[in-house]
């Protein structure tokens, strides 16, 4: 088994993600350079957080044109697993591997804090180690995490069970306050119809060791590893 983490110029959670898979979970993990056309035979591709290309046009908008993204598209089309975290999620939206788009947070400020998210769909390869409705404590750190999709898209997402995670209160209930960035339907993470592409704004790699205050991110990382 081998995990690949894509390095875009401006990625800054790339080595945190590699650390989580390699040092914490003990799985072989390699960096994948955005200019290459080589996935090095990995079994899963992770698009990490950060500010690819400075997020200068829109978050994730320029990274989508990186040479390696052609291979990632094909990889995903074959049903192989792709996980986008934060900026990686934004790239997946720009790539149209997941539906919708991100707007600026509702308070118009960057937001870094621990949040509670609820596992909505536990039957995916990214959530199988969690229970349905389980509340995970995982940090977010983003400016553009206010999820938007047109009504018909949103309906399709809900009907198809594509909502993987929602922002919630620690007890699992939904509220205006717990929907920290203003996302439609409190959406924190999505999965595609085929179930192999997942994107989420919270950072599981920042919640994978006790010393960092939470290990809940491991439910997600370990689910993926176990599915390979």
């Amino acid at each position: 088994m081998k995990i690949g983490v894509v390095l875009f110029p401006g990625s800054n959670c790339d080595f945190d993600t590699i650390h989580a898979f390699k040092e914490v979970l003990g799985k072989p993990t390699v960096p994948l350079w955005h200019k290459d056309h080589d996935l090095q035979g990995v079994d899963a591709v992770i698009l990490p957080g950060g500010f690819s290309y400075g997020d200068y046009l829109r978050s994730g908008a320029i990274a989508r044109f990186s040479p390696l993204m052609q291979e990632v598209r094909e990889f995903a089309a074959k049903g192989r697993p792709v996980l986008g975290i934060c900026n990686g999620f934004q790239v997946l939206l720009e790539l149209e591997l997941l539906p919708g788009a991100m707007l600026r947070n509702k308070n118009l400020k960057f937001l870094c804090r621990h949040v509670s998210i609820k596992v909505e769909n536990e039957k995916t390869r990214f959530t199988r180690k969690a229970r349905k409705g389980q509340v995970l404590n995982i940090p977010i750190a983003h400016f553009d995490g206010n999820y938007y999709a047109p009504p018909e898209t949103l309906k399709a997402i809900e009907d198809g069970g594509q909502v993987a995670f929602r922002y919630c209160e620690p007890d699992g209930s939904l509220s205006e306050a717990s929907n920290v960035n203003g996302s439609l339907h409190s959406i924190a993470g999505l999965i595609n119809k085929a179930g192999n592409v997942c994107g989420l704004m919270p950072h599981p790699e920042r919640a994978s060791e006790k010393i960092l205050g939470s290990e809940d991110g491991r439910f997600i990382l370990e689910s993926l590893v176990e599915s390979l």
């Binding site: 800054n12 650390h19 989580a20 400020k109 870094c112 750190a141 920042r206 960092l212």
Partner: peptide, 24 residues
């Protein structure tokens, strides 16, 4: 400090708000 990413690089043990920050 919520406007600052204070956790990237996954070293931050004591979050902002205490008298001193601690990084493993």
């Amino acid at each position: 400090y919520r406007q600052y990413d204070h956790m990237v690089l996954v070293n931050t043990m004591v979050l902002p708000g205490a008298g001193a920050a601690v990084l493993r």
